[in-house]
Structures are given as structure tokens and as C-alpha cells.
Amino acid sequence: MSEGDTSTGSGRGLVSMRRRSTWLGLAVVVGGGATAFGIANGFSQPLATFLAGAGALTAGVLAYRNGQNSRDQAEIHHKDDTARERERHQIDLERERERHRDDSRRARESALRDRYTAVATQIAHESAAIRQAGVYALTALADDWHAFGEDDERQVCINLLQWYLRVPFLAATDPKNPDLSEREIRQTIVGILTQRRRRPDNDPKSWAFTAISLDQISLPECHLGNLDLAGFCLDGAYLRDVIMNGANLDHANLTRANLTGANLGHANLGHANLSSANLSEADLTGVKLGGANLIHANLTGANLGSANLGSAKLTGANLTGAKLCSANLTYADLTGANLGSANLNGANLIHADLGSANLIHADLTGAKLGSTNLTRVVHGDSTRWPIDFVPPPPYS
């Protein structure tokens, strides 16, 4: 039986008891009156005696009922006091739990902040091994801040990793004694940033919605092959002699990036922004640059053999001495581009394809065109051809 049912039963019991008490009192009065009346008749006692006895009995009944009512009221007050006391206890208990939760949260937050201070010291340590350990510790701390519900603090950790990559790291002056440890640390950071960015949104270790930009980073001679850097911002990055063969850089922003001597063989740079980037002497063999923005890019001496540059924007690009054997340049915009001394001859009669390309104001002085496909190429009086070369009829 529930508490409510018990209370209802108790109430009914009190009512029943009161009724029995009332009938008992009346019975006593009637019985007393009858007895008094009989005695009065038998012994000729005056009527006053009977009335006095009846009054005494009635007073007794009333006194009993008043006492019972007082006891009932006392019991009700006791129950009310008990309920109020229980409620106060519950409120006090909840307040205590809330204080405990607040104290625990403050203690955990303090511990996380202490960890950040310790990790920041590791990141700046002279020992490469300690710096590398600091990178992993900072990554774990970022995840713990996220679990704690403070994504702003997680972003602070990520920003520190990005800051590390922006600290200038010059290529080794002595090729025989490169700083391999520092190179490995930077490669690790880039790997962490890119891999975490690619994790599913519902993964607690995903950094999909964090602010990650690799602009102005310094990664000379680092090995970043096969990394997925699609869509990343590497604006102004220093990537001289970096190895990124096979990397995915689709739609990446590499504006003004220094990729001198970089190895990007067979990398995917489709629709990437490489405007004003320095790709001189870079290995771009078989690279996918379809639809890429290479406006004013420096491709001096770059190897673009078998590269796909279809529909690429090469307005004002410098391709002096570039190797374009077997390259696909169909529909490419080479307006004002410099292809002086560029080699477009391919082995086994597979030459570059400039079909439907725009060569208005382009400079091809000294270029090796051989049997390059110039079908429907757009050119004009401003186009400069190799000496003794007979250009095809202009197409517009």
C-alpha cells in the first residue's frame, strides 16, 4: 500500500473511531438516564438527580471527544513537520551535491590548465624528443578539453600546434647533416592536423569544425607524401624542396606558397589555387592541375611532363625552360604567359597538347614545339613564336 493509501486509511480510521465514540457516549447517556429514571421511580429520588447524572455523563463524552481531537491534530502536525523536515533535508542534500559538482569541475579545469602550462614548456624545450612528446601531449589535451565541454580551450591547443609550424625552419645548410628530428616533428604535426580534420563529425577526436589553417607554415625538405590536404589553406607556406608526391591537394589554397624544388609528382592539385606561387625547378611529373589557378605562378625550369593542365589558368605565368613533354594544356589560358625555351616535345612522338589553348600575348620564343598539337589554338599578332616557326591559322 502506498503512502497516500495509508494516509487515506488512517483518516477513515479516525472518522470511524469518532463515530463509535459518539454513539458510545449517547448510549452511556441514555443508559445512565434510564437507570437514573428507574432508581428515581423505585426510590422516589428527585428528577434533579437524574438530570445531574445525565449532565455528568455528557460532559465526560465531550471531554473524551475533545481529547481525541487534540490527539488527532497533534498527529497531523507531526506528519506535516516530518514532511517539511524531509523536504528540507532533500534540498540540503541537492545543494551539497551541486557544491561537490562545482568543486570537482573547478579542480578538473585547474588540472587541465596546469597540463597546458607543462605541455607548452615541452613544446619549447631544446630536446627534440621532448618537443615530440609535447606534440602528442598537446593533442591529447585538446581532446580532453573537448570532453570537458570547452571547445574554445581545445582551439587554443590546436593554435599552438599551428604556431609551431610557423616558426621559421630553414633548410639545412649542410645537406650531409640535416635536422632530421625537427623535420619529423613538423611532419607529425601536419599529419595530426590533417588526419583529425578528416575524421567523421561524430568522432569525439574529430577536429572537423575547428579552425585549421596551414598558411605561412615552414616545412622545407619535409616528407608529406600521400597526405590528404584537400581544401586546406597553405597561403604563403614555405615548402621549399618538400616531398608531396601523391598528396591530395584538390582545391587547396597555395597562394604565394614557396614550392621551389618541391616534389609533387602525381599529386592531385585539381582546381587548387597556386596564384603567384613559386614552383621553380619543382617536380610536377604527372601532376593533376586541371582547372587550377596558376596566374602569375613561377614555373621556371619545372618538370611538367605528362601533367594535366587542362583548362588551367596560366595567365602571366612564367614557364621559361619548363619541361612540358606530353603535357595536356587543352583549353588552358596562357594569356601573357612566358614559355621561352620551354620544351613541349615528347618522347615516342607524344607531344604536348595545346589544343584550343589561349596564347594571346604569350611568349614562345625559343620554345621547342616540334609536333605539338596546336589545333584551334587562339593566338594573334601579340603572340611571339619561335624563329622560323610557321604558326597555324588563328582561331577565334
Score class of each variant (00 low, 15 high):
Arg99Cys: 06
Leu354Ser: 04
Tyr395Met: 00
Arg101Lys: 07
Ala133Phe: 10
Glu96Ile: 07
Asn258His: 04
Asn177Pro: 01
Asn318Trp: 09
Leu359Ala: 01
Leu339Met: 00
Ser181Leu: 14
Asn318His: 09
Gln90Asn: 04
Ala367Gly: 05
Ala147Glu: 00
Leu374Ser: 03
Leu138Tyr: 06
Ala83Asn: 04
Asp80His: 13
Leu319Phe: 07
Asn268Gly: 02
His379Glu: 03
Arg376Pro: 00
Pro386Lys: 06
Gly355Asp: 12
Thr320Tyr: 14
Arg240Met: 13
Val119Trp: 12
Ser10Lys: 03
Thr260Phe: 14
Thr49Trp: 15
Ala362Phe: 01
Asn338Ala: 10
Asn373Glu: 02
Arg113Gln: 14
Tyr116Ile: 04
Gly53Glu: 05
Glu94Pro: 07
Asn348Leu: 05
Arg131Ser: 01
Ala277Glu: 03
Arg131Trp: 06
Gly336His: 00
Ser44Arg: 15
Ala208Ile: 14
Gly370Asp: 09
Ala74Met: 04
Pro175Gln: 07
Gln132Ala: 15
Leu138Ile: 06
Ala322Ser: 12
Glu109Leu: 15
Trp385Asp: 02
Leu227Ala: 12
His89Cys: 09
Asp92Gly: 10
Leu93Pro: 00
Leu160Ala: 15
Leu354Tyr: 07
Pro168Ser: 14
Gly53Lys: 04
Ala327Val: 11
Ser206Leu: 05
Leu47Cys: 02
Ala342Val: 03
Ala317Thr: 13
Ala307Ile: 02
His351Arg: 05
Asp143Ala: 02
Gly67Cys: 01
Pro200His: 11
Asp80Pro: 01
Asn373Ala: 07
Pro200Glu: 08
Ala40Ser: 14
Thr6Tyr: 02
Leu334Arg: 12
Phe148Cys: 01
Gly336Phe: 02
Val28His: 07
Gly305Asn: 14
Arg113Thr: 09
Ala118Cys: 06
Gly261Gln: 04
Glu182Val: 05
Ala332Gly: 03
Ala302Gly: 03
Lys79Val: 15
Leu354Phe: 07
Leu274Val: 07
Leu26Trp: 13
Leu229Phe: 08
Gly38Asn: 09
Leu359Tyr: 08
Asn245Gly: 13
His89Tyr: 13
Asp72Tyr: 09
Met17Tyr: 10
Arg20His: 13
Leu284Lys: 01
Ala257Phe: 12
Arg12Tyr: 14
Thr173Val: 08
Val135Asn: 00
Ile350Ser: 06
Ala48Glu: 06
Val242His: 11
Ala208Leu: 13
Arg197Asn: 04
Arg97Asp: 12
Val167Gly: 01
Glu126Ser: 14
Leu165Ile: 06
His77Phe: 10
Arg199Pro: 05
His296Met: 14
His78Asn: 10
Asn348Tyr: 08
Ser21Ile: 15
Gly321Ile: 13
Gly60Leu: 14
Gln68Pro: 05
Pro175Thr: 02
Gln122Phe: 12
Thr82Pro: 03
Ala56Ile: 15
Pro168Glu: 15
Asp388Ile: 07
